[in-house]
């Protein structure tokens, strides 16, 4: 692995100890990236950032090209068989890896709940449990699996966090992204009022009931504005694209960043702290 100047810097904070030790002794975790459709098609910078962050942690993430959708749109719309087909494909694609990392709380939650898709008695249920146990949302992987609580980086901005519902309630990723954000130098984290309210994206919901979805989103945006944050960050591309679409339609200059993009910018950006 290529070491950077910072690796030799004497001014390493003790909080970053775990990070540096991983860089020198790379973890032996055969890791696959599950990119998710939205990041692949609409926001590839999320995937690029995820790969670079994982590499900086000493990992060599692979991208199995046979992967596709996790099946959540089919499952949530009630098309059980279509969801099963996609779930089964995912089991095959990720069978030989130690860990599957995805930059989405919602897609992670779907994969973690495949046993529900197959049902109690299905032969694939056991395998679904195995995949569930090794599938992580990005920040949960870094904090819980790798044990890295802090990443080096500088992000001198006022940031508020959108805690996506599926990430928090279904994948139980709550404190991990905040832990990583609050460790960055210069970053001022401002709590989002009514953070527990859904932003109104909801997958197909946002085009099935566009008026209700937009009303929910506008309420979320007004809370974002009330924080006077320059950056709205989150870990689900769906929510972020929906909120960004509303903010940009209204001409609000708030930047909308995925956690991976933010961490990457903090690690490599030119901003000084």
């Amino acid at each position: 692995m290529r070491l950077t100047a910072a690796d030799h810097s004497p001014a390493r904070s003790p909080q970053l100890h775990r990070y540096w030790s991983l860089r020198h002794n790379p973890p032996r975790v055969h890791t696959a990236l599950f990119i998710t459709c939205l990041a692949d098609q609409l926001r590839p910078s999320i995937g690029v950032a995820t790969v670079r962050i994982l590499r900086r942690l000493g990992l060599k993430p692979e991208f199995p090209a046979a992967q596709g959708c996790c099946g959540q749109p089919a499952w949530n719309l009630g098309h059980v068989n279509e969801a099963k087909v996609e779930a089964q494909r995912m089991l095959n694609v990720f069978r030989d890896y130690d860990a599957v990392v995805t930059p989405s709380g919602s897609c992670a939650a779907m994969v973690q709940h495949y046993s529900t898709v197959f049902g109690k008695d299905d032969a694939l249920t056991q395998e679904a449990h195995i995949l569930a146990a090794k599938t992580y949302e990005l920040s949960a992987f870094i904090v819980n699996r790798l044990g890295v609580k802090n990443l080096p980086g500088c992000f001198p901005h006022r940031v508020t966090w959108h805690a996506s519902c599926h990430g928090t309630r279904l994948a139980d990723v709550r404190s991990e992204p905040l832990q990583l954000l609050s460790g960055l130098e210069g970053l001022e984290l401002v709590p989002l009022p009514r953070a527990e309210d859904c932003c109104g994206f909801g997958g197909a919901f946002c085009v099935k009931f566009p008026e209700v979805s937009a009303a929910m989103g506008r309420e979320k945006c007004s809370h974002v504005s009330s924080t006077r944050a320059n950056v709205l960050a989150g870990n689900d591309a769906g929510c972020l694209l929906h909120l960004q679409g509303l903010l940009s339609r209204d001409g609000t200059p708030t930047r909308v960043l995925h956690l991976a993009e933010l961490l990457e910018e903090a690690a490599t950006g030119r901003a000084a702290c």
Binding site: A39, D40, Q41, L42, R43, P210, G245
Partner: peptide, 26 residues
């Protein structure tokens, strides 16, 4: 769905290439 999305929201800026296409470079 494109029309329904755009009733209240701008479309996301389209990337030049998908992640799949970028992977080789990575």
């Amino acid at each position: 769905p494109l029309e329904r999305w755009q009733r209240a929201r701008s479309l996301p800026p389209a990337p030049a290439r998908t992640f799949r296409a970028l992977w080789q470079e990575l």
